[in-house]
């Protein structure tokens, strides 16, 4: 594999967890639920995925476990903010701290363990295309899943009736209620979906990407995912672009650091670069007020209590 090919390969791998997590958050936010607990849900997904894969030897059971762990975390959140009407921002922050802490506690015994690398899936013919074939069509299986999720969500939001309903609930829960839709139930489902996606994203990190468990291994990706959704003005395609941009800069700076080139830039700065670059680019593309106005869920973060 040439350097170009491996950069492309690693870029896609690094961007994938962000895509999965951010698209899940996008669905929750489109329904009006702001869950800042993505970091904690990812951490729980990572440890659950790692532990189950370690004991069963089956990475797919690991992903399933990560998904369930993330969904359980988001259920806790949903109960607090949707049923008990607590403040979403504060509850989300608490969920992040809780998840990161709990995962570290559960993960103690696994710290020195390592998993077998999961082989890539090679798609016949397509993988033979020069340069891009290898990086794109001979990839980790979850990468194909992330593309399927992207396609599914884009279709769901803009082509299907439940997607229309979801957007409607996020815009005006009171109007949705007055024409007879179960706002709270829809918000529960959207939040659970967001949690499940965060769990899958977390398990991708520990089961496929590294594949090992280290405390704090999520390393702020949950926060970047949340920022991605906002700066991508709640549009799935932009989320995907932003995630790969992040992945690209992440890999490029690793190559620079590892290349042994004599550059007088502190390595900490290089490590921060992907976060910085993603935010700057997305801030620039999200300046259009009209796009923001048309795509931002108006009721985001606001509790809704139906008057019965």
């Amino acid at each position: 594999m040439s350097i170009l090919e491996s950069i492309l390969f690693e870029t896609i791998v690094a961007g994938t967890p962000l895509i999965i997590v951010a698209l899940g958050q996008l669905i929750a936010e489109k329904a009006g639920v702001l869950n800042l607990g993505a970091e904690g849900m990812m951490a729980m997904g990572a440890i659950a995925g790692f532990a189950v894969t370690f004991h069963t030897g089956n990475p797919w059971l690991g992903v399933l476990a990560g998904m369930v762990a993330g969904a359980l975390m988001s259920f806790l959140f949903a109960f607090v903010v949707l049923t008990l009407m607590a403040n979403q921002v504060a509850s989300g922050l608490a969920l992040s701290i809780f998840g990161v802490g709990l995962s570290a506690f559960i993960g103690k015994p696994y710290e020195s363990e390592i998993l077998a690398t999961v082989p890539t899936w090679r798609i016949p013919l397509l993988a033979d295309i020069p340069i891009i074939g290898g990086p794109i069509f001979n990839q980790q299986p979850l990468i194909y899943l992330s593309w399927a999720i992207f396609g599914g969500i884009a279709w769901f939001l803009y082509k299907s009736r439940p997607g229309l309903l979801l957007r409607a609930v996020g815009e005006s829960p009171s109007s949705a209620h007055s024409i007879g839709y179960p706002v709270i139930r829809i918000r529960y489902m959207a939040t659970l979906f967001g949690g499940a996606m965060a769990g899958i994203g977390g398990s991708f990190l520990s089961v496929f990407y590294t594949p090992l468990w280290v405390e704090g291994m999520v390393a702020g990706r949950g926060w970047i995912a949340i920022a991605l959704v906002v700066f991508a003005t709640w549009r799935p395609f932009r989320v995907m672009v932003g995630a790969y941009l992040f992945g690209g800069v992440m890999v490029a700076q690793l190559f620079v650091q590892g290349s042994g080139l004599e550059i007088n830039i502190p390595s900490q700065f290089l490590s921060a670069l992907p976060y910085l670059a993603t935010i700057i680019v997305l801030v620039i593309i999200s300046r259009d007020q009209n796009t923001v106005r048309l795509n931002a869920p108006v009721s985001l973060g606001q509790p809704y209590r139906p008057d019965a």
């Binding site: 229309l164 957007r167 409607a168 815009e171 005006s172 109007s175 007055s178 024409i179 795509n295």
Partner: peptide, 11 residues
Amino acid sequence: FSLFETLTVVE
């Protein structure tokens, strides 16, 4: 009105 502003009339 119980309308959704960011959606079209037909939606």
